[in-house]
């Protein structure tokens, strides 16, 4: 196998990620996140597409109150722009760029895309209910030993394990 395409040793990558998180906490006092940036996109879309609905819904107005400069002017939006650039650079360095679709054996492209959309919807919905996703709640929560964060982490992985058998055809042949 071409060495260039190999992934980093997982423990080394973990230590790297751990130091990125530690630096974030040290500099800003907060952890990393991801789903919050998608929330900014969702709120921005609502604001553009249905301004009246946006004005009359308490949920969006609360969000607007927390983000006085507009929903896109949020820490996590900038952080996620960084993620896109950082991941792109990493992919470019390791020769992994290219329009691709990754899926389990015996799954059609359509099934994979539908699965990704439905999975995304569930994850997006759950992240709002659980106040953060794997990054903001589980990983960052673990670093600061937050009870809620670690419980959310256990629920995410526990939930996925519990359901893995039912969705095995999406990923493995057995």
């Amino acid at each position: 196998m071409d060495r260039k395409n190999k992934f980093m040793n997982p423990y080394l990558a973990g230590i790297l990620l751990g130091f990125v998180l530690l630096a974030t906490i040290y500099i800003t006092g907060r952890g990393l996140g991801a789903s919050g940036a998608m929330k900014s996109v969702a709120v921005t879309s609502v604001k553009a597409a249905a301004p009246e609905h946006y004005e009359s819904t308490a949920y969006y107005q609360d969000y607007a109150a927390d983000h006085p400069d507009g929903p896109m002017k949020s820490w996590l939006v900038f952080e996620m722009l960084g993620v896109l650039i950082g991941a792109f650079l990493s992919g470019a360095l390791s020769g992994r760029l290219g329009l691709k679709l990754e899926k389990g054996p015996g799954v059609t492209n359509t099934t994979r895309i539908i699965g990704a959309i439905i999975g995304g919807m569930l994850f997006g919905f759950g992240s709002q209910l659980g106040r953060g996703c794997t990054s903001g709640s589980a990983l960052s929560g673990m670093a600061v030993m937050s009870f809620g964060g670690i419980i959310t982490m256990l629920a995410i992985f526990g939930g996925a394990y519990a359901l893995a058998w039912f969705f095995r055809k999406l990923w493995i042949t057995r």
């Binding site: 993620v83 792109f88 990493s90 691709k100 990704a116 439905i118 997006g124 996703c133 969705f167 999406l170």
Partner: peptide
């Protein structure tokens, strides 16, 4: 509850939000 829903999203969608962005970035 949110965690379990996210777990379902993980196994069906194959990503979590942070990793989906990393995947999207490389195409």
């Amino acid at each position: 509850t949110g965690g379990i829903i996210m777990g379902a999203g993980f196994i069906i969608g194959g990503f979590c939000p942070g990793t989906s962005a990393a995947a999207a970035a490389i195409g």
